[in-house]
Design a protein around this nucleic acid. Sequence first.
DNA 1: TTAAACTGCTGAATCGAATCAGCAACGGTC
DNA 2: GACCGTTGCTGATTCGATTCAGCAGTTTAA
Lengths: 340, 340
Amino acid sequence: MAAQRKATLSDVASRAGVSTTTASYILNNRSAEMRISADADERVRRAAAELAYRPNRSAQSLRTRRSGTIGLISDSVASGQYGSRMLTGASAAARALDHLVVIGETEGDPVLEAQLIEEMTDRQVDGFIYATLVTSEVVIPEGLRETRSVLLNCVDRERTLPAVLPDEVAGGRTAAEVVLGAGHTKDIYLIGHDPNPHALAGPLRMEGVTARLAEAGVELAGVVPSGWSVLPAYEAVLSWLRTGVRPEAVICLNDRIALGAYEALADHGLAVPEEVTVVSFDGSTLASWLRPSLTSVSLPYVELGATAVRMLMDPATPPDAIDRLEMPLLAGDSVRPTTR
Amino acid sequence: MAAQRKATLSDVASRAGVSTTTASYILNNRSAEMRISADADERVRRAAAELAYRPNRSAQSLRTRRSGTIGLISDSVASGQYGSRMLTGASAAARALDHLVVIGETEGDPVLEAQLIEEMTDRQVDGFIYATLVTSEVVIPEGLRETRSVLLNCVDRERTLPAVLPDEVAGGRTAAEVVLGAGHTKDIYLIGHDPNPHALAGPLRMEGVTARLAEAGVELAGVVPSGWSVLPAYEAVLSWLRTGVRPEAVICLNDRIALGAYEALADHGLAVPEEVTVVSFDGSTLASWLRPSLTSVSLPYVELGATAVRMLMDPATPPDAIDRLEMPLLAGDSVRPTTR
DNA sequence: TTAAACTGCTGAATCGAATCAGCAACGGTC
DNA sequence: GACCGTTGCTGATTCGATTCAGCAGTTTAA
C-alpha cells in the first residue's frame, strides 16, 4: 500500500463526528474536566486507533513550547565506558518519562558548547543536563540558566543548580572498610594524585579513606603520587617499590592506576592478593578483566544519568538540591583473604 | 534585564520595515532568487542581528517537515568504549551539517525499538542511523524504511539500505601482514570464535588472515576456539598451551581475548614479545594499557559514526551503497622484533 | 502608444495542534 | 413563564515560520 499522509487530529475528529477541539481534549485525557460524554470519548479513541493517529510533535511544540526532549551537553560522551553509561541511564530514564535525549559533545570547547546550547534551545528542549566526564566543579555556561537544568557529575561553586554526584567520601570509606576488613592495620598506602585542579574525586576519596581508617585507629602509611593513568602509575609504583617499601595494602584512586600497580607489583615479584591487597575506584569493566579480578568501589554511572533526568523532570526539585549517590562495592579477588 | 520574549521573524521584519515574507527569503539566502534589493537585505540582516533573532525550529519543522535532527537507534550505545565512539563521530559529523543527534537504546528489545522509532518519527527526524554494537546482519525493523536511513556497523541481507562497516577482511590481512613482517612463517595460531551467529567480524577477519598468509605461502597452524571475552580466552589458551604446543605468534580475534591470552602466556612462562608475538583486533584503549602494549588492528569507530551521518545526509547515496572503512593498525610492543 | 517584461516587494494561506470564549439545549426553581 | 445552572460541545484564534500567487511601478520592445 502506498505510504499515505499521516492522519491528523482533524482526520480523527471528522471520522468521530466531533470538532478538533473535542478530539484534542479527549486525547489529552481532559474528558472529565471538559464534560465530554463517554460516547464521544469512545468514538474519538476508536477513530484515533483506527487511523493510527500520532500527534505531530512539531505542531505540539510550537503551541506548547515543550518538545518532549532533553538536551544532554557533555564534554565527552564517549571516552571509554564512562560517560556513555551516564548516557544509557539518562536515555532510559527519559524514555520512562516520555522524553528523548538529544546529545551534544563540546570536547571542552566553550564556543562549541555555546552553539550546542543555542541549537538545543532553538529546538525547545524541555531541559538540559550538563555533564562532565570527570567529577568536577564547573562554571555554568551562559544560556543554561534560561532553561531548566541539572548538573551531572559536577557542581557549580554557588550551588545554584541541582546536581547529581557520586558520594566520593562514602566511597573512600568503603574502600578503607574493605582493607580493614581484610585485617590490615599497617603499611596501607594510597596511590594516585589527580593533576586536574577542578577534579573533585581524588581528594574526596582520600578524605573518606583517611577518615574511616582513623576511626579504626589506623593511619595511612603514605601516599604515592602518580598520574591518573596506566603507564605513569606503573612507573611511579615500580620506582616506589624499589625504594624498599613493603606495602600490605594499596588503595588506588582509580582502576587504571590499579592496572599500573598490578603490573608493577608483578614485575617486583609481589603477589596479589597473597602478599599485597589492592583496592581501587571506578568499577570499570577493566576491574573484572584483570587476574585476580580487582576489588573496586564503583561509580554508579547509569544511576547518575537516570537520577539527573528524574531530578530535571521533577518540578519539586529545589535549585540547590544535591544528590550524592552511593558507590557500590564491586568485589573481586584482589583482597587478602582473612586468616583465622 | 528581564528575560524577554524571544524575537520572532515578524519582529525582525517590522524593525527592518519589510514583510515577513521578505525577511524570510532574505534569512534563507534567497535574496538573489527573489530579487531582493541589497538595501533591504542588509536592513533585515542587521535587524536580525540586533534582535539576536533565532528561528523557532518547531515552527520551521511544522512547515518544512524537517527538524534538523538525526535519530540514532542502537542496541546499546554504551557498552564499553565501543558504541559510544560511534556516537561521538556521528554527533560531530551531524553538527558539521547543522544537525543534532537524538539517541535511543533498544537493548535488543524489538518492542522498545519500535517505540523509539515511532517517537523519533513523530519528532520529524530527518533520518535514522541504525547501529549495532557488534558488526552483524540484521533485519530492518518496520518504520525505518519510511524515513531515510543508514545502517551503521551492520547490513541487511537484501542490501536495501546504505551501510557503513569496517573492512574486516582487509583488517585480517593487516594482522597477517604484521605477523609475516616479524618474520614468522610457522606456528601461527588464531584465537577466538564468535558464538553469535549474526556476527560477521570473526569469520571475515579470519578470512583476511588466511588469505594474506596464503599469499606468502604460509599456513595457519591452527585455530583455538574461545569465547569472545577475557576469562574464557584465558582458560582456553592456558589449557591449550598445556597440551604442549609452542606458538610463535597468536592472532586474537579481539583485544579482550588478547588480554586473556596475555594472562595465560604469563602463567605459562612465555614472554611477549620475545617468545610469542601477539596481534589482535579492535584497537581499544585496553590495548595501550597492557604491558607490553598490544598491537591491534583497530576499529575506526569514530569514522564509522561520522561516515554514516554523511551518507545519510548526502542525497546522492544510493540505497545499496556499502562503505567499508579501513581498519588502521595500532602498533604496540607485542610483536617480536625482527632479528637481522 | 501600447504591450510585455522586469523589479521588488507583500497578503494570505498553510503546517497541526492547543485552548479561550462562547453557545445551544435541557432541566429545575420560584 | 422568566431565570439560572448544567451538560456537551464548537468556532476561531494562536504558536512562528514558509511559500504561492499576485501586484504596483518602471523599463524595454515593437
